[in-house]
Amino acid sequence: MISHGTFTWNELYTDNPKKACDFYGSLLGWQFEEMPGPDGVYRIAKVGDRPVAGIFEMKGEHFRGVPPHWLAYIDVDDIDKRVAAAKKAGAQMIREPFDVEGVGRLAIFKDAVGALIAWMTPVPRG
């Protein structure tokens, strides 16, 4: 179910996912489930059976100089329509809309004040 306009996910971008998992695991009790992805292993942080965040390893030249950071995701009803409107309102695209199988269609951009944000239209859940 899409909760248009609400924050839905948080993701840590880091060049040291093991250290991040050790930190959050020991301090918050998070457990981690690893998933293979197109850019390497993606880690889902869980509290019990409930997913609470993701950990993405920053690899490659396009991450040179990018500090570790948390990225928040907001659900939107129609990513392509909403991104087009965001561009007209001054958004600067980091990643144009793209699909993640089993997750949804998302985009990453800087908003009108320069803050990094991700918007996502999730796949329908059964």
Rank of each mutant, 00 (worst) to 15 (best):
G54C: 00
F98I: 07
V76W: 00
D39K: 03
F98L: 14
V103H: 09
Y73R: 10
K18T: 15
G104M: 01
K81D: 10
W30Q: 08
Q92A: 05
V123E: 15
M58C: 03
K81T: 12
A84Q: 14
D22H: 06
M93P: 05
R50D: 05
V113D: 04
V76D: 05
I94L: 09
D75M: 08
Y73M: 07
D111L: 09
P51L: 01
P122I: 04
Y73V: 01
K19F: 11
L116A: 14
T6Q: 11
L12I: 07
E33A: 12
I108M: 09
E33F: 00
I2L: 09
L106T: 06
R95H: 14
A118F: 02
M1Y: 00
D39Q: 12
D39T: 01
P97T: 07
G29D: 02
I44V: 13
G48K: 04
P36I: 02
G40D: 12
D22C: 09
I108D: 03
R43A: 13
G40S: 06
G5M: 05
K81S: 13
E57P: 14
G114A: 07
G25K: 05
A20R: 03
V66A: 13
H4T: 14
W30C: 02
E11Y: 01
E34C: 08
E101F: 04
A115N: 12
F23N: 02
V103K: 11
Q92W: 00
S26E: 06
D111A: 12
V123S: 10
L116E: 15
K87V: 14
D39N: 04
N16S: 15
A20H: 02
V113E: 10
G37D: 05
D22L: 11
A112W: 11
P17F: 08
W119I: 13
D75N: 13
E61H: 06
